[in-house]
Nucleic acid binder design. Structure first.
Length: 769
DNA sequence: GAGCACTGC
C-alpha cells in the first residue's frame, strides 16, 4: 500500500490521474526511512529520465533493498548502448503526460526489454499494489524476455519480475510488479476481471503481428481507457503501420486525433536487396539455383532460404545437397562443402537445434570454407533467430490460414507475403554483419503487388471462439464492437449461429449460463459443450481424454522411410468404431506405459504431443472441478463407447456426414459438401452416419477424425438443428425422415419438437429401433 | 490413399 512506502513521502495520494500536474524536483528526504533511498522523492508517473538514471546507478536495488551486484553494473553498461536507452528522457516525459502511447521500435532497438523497465521506474506499481503487464504473442518470448529483464533488474525470476503463460505461472502475488505474459493469457484474465484492475499499465508488444488475441485486447483496452482513467496503455510495434494504431487510439482528446508516437531506430547492419529482372515461374527451382549461385560466387557466410512447408523444404534440401556435392566433386579447389538444414515447427526440438550448428569445416585445411544453408518456413521470420546469417533468399511466399464462412472451412493457402514481411525476412541477413537479400520477384511486383501488411488474423479465422469470449467479456453488440479491423459480417453471423445452436447464446444473443461455463474452457465451443454435458452420459473422464487429445497436434508419426511399420503400429491401437475412440485408447495405453521411455517411439507416436495432451487434460479437469462437474466413467465398454458417441453428438451435431452416392462417398448434412473419409481414418466399415472433427480441403475435400453415430441421437440431442422442415430435399432428408417415422411409430406421442438443444440433455437409453 | 504455415488459451 502506498502509505507504507518510504519513497513516497511527497506523493499526493489523491493524484491517480495519468495526466498529473508537473511537480518540482522534490526536496530532501523528510522521513527517515526514505533517506538516501534510490527512489527518494519520486512522484509516480512524474519521474524524469535523470531521476531514473540516478536510481539505476544507485548502489542499492530499490525493489529488493539489496546492493546491486557486479553483474548488474556490467549489464547496465550494455543497456546504455541500446537505441531506446538514449531516448529515456523523451519516453519518461511522454509517459507522464499521456494515457496512451504508440511506440515504434525496429529490431534491435531494445524496446521489449527496456520500455517495461522504464515504465516500472515511472509508474512505481509496487507502491500501489499494482502490476505492469507486457504481452507477447509467443510463450517462449514471454519466458525468455522475463528472464533477461529479471537479470537486468538484479532480481530473481518469478519474484519482482515474472511471467505468466498457459500451464506456468511464474509470478509471486504481492511481489511481482512486472509481468510478461502471452496475449491470450491477458485476454483470459479479462474474462474474469473486465477492468483488469490489477494492472496500472498494460503494454501490448508486437502489435504489428495482429494476432487474434492482440486485436481483441486493443478493442478492450480502448474501451477500458475511458472507464479507467488511471490505466496507462502502450502499444508497441516493429513496423511503420503505427499511424493506424495512433488513429485508433486517438480517444478524441487531442487536436490532431492521434495518440502520440514514440519512435526509436533499430540497430542492425545494412542489407543490400536484389530483385530478379523477370518473374520466376518456378520459385522452388529458382530458390535452389540462387542458393547455389551464392555458394559459388559470394563471400563466406550462412544462407537462410524461406519456403512454405515441410514437403517443399525436405525436397529442396535434398536437391541442394545433391547439386552442392556435384559442385564439390567438380571443383573442390574453389567451392567448399555445404550443410543443408531443414527448419519447421513439427520437427522435434533436437533437430531444430541443428540450425545453431557451425558451418562445415573446409574439405582440406586451408581449402574453401564450408557454408550452412537453413531452409525454413516462416518460423525463422519471427519465432526463431539464427545468428550468423549473411544471405537471405526470399521467394516471396508463405502458407496462410484462410477462412471461408460460406462453407465454414479454414484451409491453408500458399500466398504472396506482405512488404512488411519481406522487410523482416531481409533483416534476418543483417543481425551480425552487413548482408544481402535476394528476392525472387521483380522490384515492380514488390512495389505494386505486395500488400503493405499481412492480413490480420481476425479477418482470416473462424471466430466462434472469439465471439464466445467477447460475450463473456460483456460485449453486447459484437457487430458494432470497435475492432481495429472489423471481421466480415458473415463470419460473425456464422459464429453467432453456431453458438446459438450450442445454446451458449440465447435467441437474443445473450450469454447463457452454459455459454458462460463454456467460455471458461480453453477449447473450441463444440469441444467445451461436449465436455460439459458428458457427466450426464457418465463418461466425463473419457471425454476429458478425448477433448485433450483433439487439442494437441497430430500424435501419429509416419517417417517417409518407415510408412509401413508406422501404419502397422497404428493398426494395433485402432478401435474400429471410430477415431475418437482410438484417440482415447492411445492415451490410455500411453498412461499405462509411462514407465517405458521407448514406448511412444516404438509405437510411432509423438511423445511431445502426448505429454501436451496430459497437460491439457489436467487443466481441463481443474476447470471441470471448478464448476463441480462430476468426473465419472462407465465400466462396461460397449455402454461406454455409446455414451462417448452420444456426448460427441451434443457438441458436434453440426459436423455430421451421411453416406451417399458411390463407394466411400459422404455428403455433409445441411452444407451438402461431397466429402470422403480421410485416408488416416481407422473405421473398418463405412457407416451410414458419421460425426467428424474437421473438414479439410487439401488434394480433395476430406473429413478427418471420424466416428459412427446413430441418426436417432441427432434428432434427440439437436432437434432444432435437425428440424426437417428446414431441410433441402435429398437423400439425407429422406433418410432422416425414415428415422423420424420409425421413432414416432415406436414411441407414440414422443416429442421431437423441443426448441433447445439443452432441454434434452437427459441421457435416456437410445434404443435402436 | 494423405500431410501439418505459425501461434495461443
Amino acid at each position: 500500500m502506498a502509505s507504507d512506502n518510504p519513497y513516497l513521502a511527497h506523493h499526493n495520494k489523491k493524484n491517480k490521474s495519468g495526466a498529473s500536474s508537473r511537480v518540482n524536483t522534490p526536496g530532501p528526504a523528510q522521513g527517515s526511512m526514505s533517506k538516501g533511498g534510490p527512489l527518494h522523492g519520486f512522484m509516480p508517473r512524474n519521474v524524469t529520465g535523470t531521476q531514473a538514471r540516478t536510481a539505476l546507478e544507485h548502489d542499492e536495488n530499490p525493489f529488493t533493498g539489496n546492493p546491486h551486484s557486479a553483474q548488474y553494473k556490467k549489464i547496465l553498461e550494455a543497456r546504455k548502448k541500446l537505441p531506446v536507452y538514449t531516448q529515456m528522457d523523451e519516453f519518461m516525459r511522454m509517459f507522464s503526460e499521456n494515457q496512451v502511447i504508440v511506440m515504434v521500435g525496429e529490431t534491435g532497438s531494445g524496446k521489449t526489454t527496456q520500455i517495461p523497465q522504464f515504465v516500472a521506474y515511472s509508474d512505481l506499481p509496487h507502491t500501489k499494489g499494482k502490476m505492469v503487464a507486457c504481452t507477447q504473442p509467443r510463450r517462449v518470448a514471454a519466458m525468455s524476455v522475463a528472464k533477461r529483464v529479471a537479470d537486468e533488474m538484479d532480481v530473481q525470476l518469478g519474484r519482482h519480475v515474472g511471467y505468466s503463460i498457459r500451464f506456468e505461472d511464474m509470478t509471486e502475488p504481492g511481489t511481482t510488479f512486472l509481468k510478461y505474459m502471452t496475449d491470450g493469457m491477458l485476454l483470459r484474465e479479462a474474462m474474469n476481471d473486465p477492468d483488469l484492475q490489477r494492472y496500472s499499465t498494460i503494454i501490448l508488444d508486437e502489435a504489428h503481428e495482429r494476432t487474434l488475441a492482440t486485436d481483441i485486447l486493443m478493442g478492450l483496452l480502448k474501451a477500458l481507457a475511458k472507464r479507467r482513467k488511471d490505466l496507462k496503455i502502450i502499444i508497441m510495434s516493429a513496423t511503420l503501420d503505427a499511424v493506424k494504431f495512433q488513429r485508433y487510439f486517438s480517444l478524441g482528446n487531442d487536436e490532431d486525433g492521434k495518440a502520440p508516437l514514440f519512435k526509436v531506430p533499430g540497430r542492425t547492419f545494412p542489407v543490400d536487396v536484389f530483385y530478379t529482372q523477370e518473374p520466376e515461374p518456378d520459385y522452388v527451382e529458382a530458390a535452389i539455383r540462387t542458393v547455389l549461385m551464392i555458394h559459388r560466387a559470394e563471400d563466406p557466410g550462412d544462407i537462410l532460404l524461406f519456403l512454405t512447408g515441410e514437403e517443399e523444404i525436405e525436397d529442396a534440401c535434398r536437391k541442394i545437397k545433391i547439386e552442392a556435392d556435384d559442385l564439390l566433386s567438380q571443383d573442390s579447389d574453389s567451392v567448399g562443402p555445404i550443410s543443408c538444414i531443414p527448419l519447421y515447427s513439427s520437427l522435434p526440438p533436437q533437430q531444430q537445434q541443428r540450425i545453431f550448428d557451425k558451418a562445415p569445416e573446409p574439405r582440406v585445411a586451408g581449402g574453401p570454407p564450408g557454408r550452412k544453408v537453413v531452409v525454413s518456413t516462416n518460423i525463422a521470420e519471427t519465432s526463431l533467430t539464427i545468428d550468423g546469417i549473411v544471405y537471405v533468399v526470399d521467394p516471396g511466399f508463405f502458407k496462410q490460414k484462410v477462412y471461408n464462412p460460406r462453407i465454414r472451412v479454414e484451409s491453408l493457402l500458399v500466398s504472396p507475403i506482405s512488404k512488411a514481411s519481406a522487410q523482416q525476412r531481409a533483416g534476418r541477413a543483417g543481425r551480425t554483419r552487413p548482408g544481402k537479400c535476394f528476392r525472387l520477384y521483380t522490384e515492380k511486383d514488390f512495389m505494386k503487388e505486395l500488400e503493405e501488411q499481412t492480413y490480420p488474423e481476425i479477418l482470416r479465422s473462424n471466430l466462434a471462439n472469439t465471439v464466445l469470449e467477447l460475450a463473456k467479456l460483456g460485449i453486447k453488440d459484437l457487430v458494432h464492437f470497435d475492432y481495429v479491423d472489423a471481421p466480415a459480417p458473415e463470419t460473425l453471423m456464422r459464429a453467432l449461429e453456431l453458438l446459438n445452436y450450442l445454446a451458449a447464446l440465447d435467441d437474443d444473443g445473450n450469454l447463457t449460463a452454459l455459454g458462460g461455463m463454456m467460455a471458461e474452457f480453453p477449447l473450441d465451443p463444440q469441444l467445451a459443450k461436449m465436455l460439459i454435458v458428458s457427466p450426464e452420459f457418465k463418461c466425463s473422464n473419457e471425454m476429458l481424454t478425448i477433448t485433450a487429445m483433439l487439442s494437441v497436434p497430430n500424435i501419429w508419426v509416419r517417417p517417409q522411410a518407415q510408412r509401413q511399420q508406422a501404419d502397422q503400429a497404428k493398426a494395433l491401437l485402432t478401435v474400429p468404431g471410430g477415431d475418437h475412440l482410438t484417440l482415447m485408447n492411445v492415451y490410455n495405453h500411453y498412461q499405462n506405459n509411462l514407465h517405458d521411455k521407448n514406448w511412444t517411439w516404438q509405437h510411432y507416436l509423438n511423445s511431445r504431443a502426448l505429454q501436451q495432451a496430459d497437460n491439457v487434460r489436467a487443466q481441463l479437469q481443474r476447470n471441470m472441478e471448478k464448476f463441480d462437474l462430476p468426473l465419472v466413467s462407465i465400466d462396461n465398454e460397449t455402454k461406454l463407447h455409446q455414451a462417448v458417441r452420444e456426448s460427441l453428438v451434443c457438441g458436434f451435431f453440426m459436423q455430421i456426414a451421411h453416406k451417399e452416392g458411390e463407394k466411400g462417398g459422404y455428403m455433409t448434412v445441411k452444407d451438402n459438401q461431397a466429402v470422403r473419409l480421410h485416408p488416416s481414418c481407422g473405421l473398418d466399415t463405412s457407416p451410414e452416419w458419421v460425426i467428424f472433427n474437421e473438414f479439410v480441403l487439401t488434394t480433395s475435400p476430406y473429413i478427418r477424425i471420424v466416428t459412427e453415430v446413430r441418426p436417432e441421437w441427432l434428432l434427440k440431442y439437436a432437434p432444432t438443428y435437425f428440424d426437417l422442415t428446414q431441410f433441402k430435399d435429398g437423400e439425407t432428408k429422406r433418410a432422416l425422415q425414415r428415422v423420424v417415422d420409425r421413432v414416432s411409430n415406436k414411441v407414440s406421442g414422443g416429442s421431437n419438437g423441443r426448441s433447445r438443444v439443452n432441454d434434452e440433455r437427459e441421457p435416456k437409453r437410445a434404443r435402436r429401433a
